[in-house]
Design a protein around this nucleic acid. Structure first.
Lengths: 121, 121
DNA sequence: CTAGGACCTGGAGCGCGCTCCAGGTCAAGG
DNA sequence: CCTTGACCTGGAGCGCGCTCCAGGTCCTAG
């Protein structure tokens, strides 16, 4: 029992049927095998990939990133180094965003203080 | 000398003229004062706001966030609390993204290890 | 055999955040 | 005066990441 119909795959990954098909079309995973009639049958392996994709999307990577990502991972070639590199770059970027937010928080605190001092009703 | 022509404002904020106008149209800052002829003249105050906006955008907040943000800050009313709240929620979100990334990194390490063990050419 | 529902495909549509464009106005230099 | 270039406006266009739709197929239940 290591295979799932589309509905179940959707449920398990949290992606819509459309999005699953979309990702597959873009080559982010799969190709997914089919029944004689042409319906998709997702394997555990497929879903594991999808979970990883979901994870990366949630982490803020773009579709293009995921494409080169999958490309690299597919053709072995320990260029997996560059994949990890990509992730770590993104992590750095997130760090930057956090820093921006903290700056914003600081600036806001100043503004609030200023308001209180100037216009302290 | 606390005022700037559009070109200079653009240069100083790193936003395009279009984007400056766009943000102003959306009410994210301003209204910017004009010359008799109708050209914009940005003040230091304007640019300070814009810097804050840039900061928040870089931190990943959406335009809608910025709008309610500015709305809150404008009408005083120490609801600035909810503004800070917004920022901190977002910070938490970034934290979540980082976590997702780390999970992805971990999963990848596993996959790589698996590759090496299975197919270790 | 028939009905119903889950699934298929290709392509159109949408919300976001800009970016570009046409057609016109202002203002400093010659 | 005229030219030139930075600026103005409203609105169209674009790339992303889905999401929705029409029109058709499969297949299980009655």
């Amino acid at each position: 029992m290591t295979s799932y119909e589309p509905a179940e795959a959707s449920e398990r990954t949290g992606l819509s049927l459309d999005t699953l098909r979309y990702y597959e079309r873009l080559g982010l995973f799969g190709p997914v095998s089919r029944t004689a009639g042409g319906r998709r049958i997702y394997t555990d392996g497929d879903l594991a990939w999808v979970q990883l994709l979901v994870c990366l999307r949630r982490a803020g990577l773009g579709i293009a990133d995921l494409q080169m990502f999958m490309g690299r991972l597919r053709n072995g070639s320990t260029s997996s180094g560059s994949v990890v590199e990509l992730l770590e770059n993104h992590r750095a970027e997130l760090g930057g965003q956090l820093a921006q937010l903290q700056t914003a928080l600081r600036v806001l605190d100043e503004k609030i203080a200023h308001y209180r001092a100037t216009d302290g009703t």
